[in-house]
Design a protein around this nucleic acid. Structure first.
Lengths: 141, 141
DNA sequence: TTAATTCCAACTAAATTAGTTGGAATTAAA
DNA sequence: TTTAATTCCAACTAATTTAGTTGGAATTAA
């Protein structure tokens, strides 16, 4: 029941973009350096975030990434669902799913857990985390 | 962010024991058969449940398992924490943990997620799931 | 034209999860 | 007192997923 590096690194990257790409876009390279993440790996994660419409890119020299929305409109739940696939604690889309499959009697458990995770994550915005980051790391703007 | 087979199978086994080990204990073999789980694998999971004091065993012929507590006193959160290690979405016990590690600025996210998971899972008892199981599977007693 | 960048697909390595094997110890019942 | 059914234990292997790498094409500012 762990968030993988996709979720962890991807969220860090979103915070980084929120903090550093205010005037200008910021490059993958710089995000990776500041956040201490493998550049090539992070590239994959940012690709998902882009596909999901959370960040925008410009290509070529001086290119980079910016948030596609104001940070107060980006819920952490949205970010994590994009990166992790979903926050559902089980996959049960079998069409032959009957009453004794893993998910069925315990379905009430999994759906309540998922709902509570979604609610908790959707109650936090990127704005809040970016502000914490600025404070904690004493960033001048 | 998935519950593994440990959590899924282990919870099924707990429900099975709650349902079938009322008068007599029920054997690993029968639990595994009814729940369609590898017997040898389930053995490992039940060992954790036993170690955690959730089930009791008797050895030898006609031996088997029973719940160590009444099912209304067993929270699903307890069962899942035993089987999955914890419901925390991250491991961050590094002692050199500083402000830019994966967990720190996002710490508020992970701790809120963990809390909401624990609360949701602790609000459900084994009793409830066992009753659902009996109903859904039309079990005569 | 060059250097810096995003974008893309396929590959490899590492770690975790899932499951197996073999056998010792215990106990009820024939 | 033997046998069969069972729990208990430790180590091994297989499968899957996660994490990360590689190589290069396309784009663009300077």
């Amino acid at each position: 029941m762990k968030i993988s590096t996709k979720g962890r690194y991807g969220l860090k990257a979103m915070i980084d973009i929120a903090v550093y790409a205010t005037e200008n876009q910021t490059s993958l390279k710089n995000i990776a350096l500041r956040q201490d993440i493998s550049e090539a790996y992070l590239e994959q994660l940012i690709a998902s975030l882009k596909k999901a419409g959370l960040v925008k890119s410009t290509r070529g020299a001086k290119g980079g990434y910016v948030l596609a929305l104001p940070p107060e409109e980006i819920k952490i739940g949205t970010v994590l669902r994009v990166l992790e696939g979903s926050l559902s604690p089980v996959d049960c889309q079998k069409n032959g799913c009957h009453e004794n499959c893993d998910c069925c009697v315990s379905k009430t458990v999994w759906s309540r857990l998922e709902e509570s995770l979604n609610d908790a994550a959707d109650a936090i915005t990127l704005q809040e985390l970016a502000q914490d980051y600025i404070k904690v790391n004493n960033i001048q703007r």
